[in-house]
Amino acid sequence: MKDAEFKRKTEKAFALMSEKGLRKSQRIPATYRLLWWMGIKKTPALFASFASNVCFLGVYYVVFWGCCMWFVTWRPRGYSPLASVITALVAGLLFGLCMAAVFRSRRKAKGLPDWEKL
């Protein structure tokens, strides 16, 4: 997707979300703001597909939560690395599914269109 098209779609998406009464924290999660600042064009969570949200948010959770748990809790208690990775993967999958469901239900409740229709 080209920069101009992405910018046009995100501006239209933000206007729609604001018009529907969504707060800024609901419109643009901090993770997405960081990605955009880094130049990565990621579709806003409310407009992304369910599978895309599951994958992105699940991986994000696995990496950050798993690392934090490894260094703070699991390693000091002697958990095996394999058990830690499996636990982080299961937790990431559950987190991704839950958050994708939240974003999908919020999009349907507010009557927001698909990203392609913007």
Rank of each mutant, 00 (worst) to 15 (best):
L89F: 11
F14W: 09
R77I: 08
P81A: 14
M69P: 01
E11P: 06
L82G: 07
P76C: 13
T73F: 15
F14A: 11
W37H: 10
A30T: 08
A109T: 06
F47Y: 13
L16K: 04
M69G: 08
C67K: 01
S25P: 00
R23N: 13
A4I: 07
L16P: 05
M38Y: 06
C55Y: 11
T10H: 10
R77M: 15
V90R: 05
P29D: 07
F71C: 10
T87D: 08
M1C: 06
R75K: 15
F50E: 02
Y61S: 10
R75I: 12
K9G: 02
F50D: 02
G21L: 10
F50S: 02
L35I: 05
L82M: 12
A4N: 11
K20E: 07
F71E: 06
T87K: 06
K42N: 07
G111C: 06
L94A: 12
S52D: 11
R23Y: 06
K20Y: 05
F47I: 01
R27G: 03
S18Y: 06
W74V: 09
P44G: 06
A4C: 00
A15N: 09
A4D: 14
G39V: 11
V54D: 03
D114M: 08
F103L: 05
S80A: 13
K117R: 13
K7W: 12
K108R: 14
L97G: 00
K41L: 13
S49C: 03
K24M: 11
L112E: 01
R75S: 14
F103R: 04
Y32K: 00
N53V: 01
A109G: 11
V54W: 01
K2I: 07
R104Q: 11
C67R: 02
D114W: 04
A100R: 00
T87Q: 09
A4K: 13
C68F: 15
F71N: 10
R104P: 00
R107G: 02
K9V: 01
F64C: 07
A15F: 05
P29G: 06
G66N: 08
G96V: 00
G21T: 09
W74R: 12
F6A: 09
A91R: 02
Y32N: 07
L46T: 03
W70V: 12
R8Y: 08
L93Y: 01
G92W: 03
A91E: 04
Y32V: 10
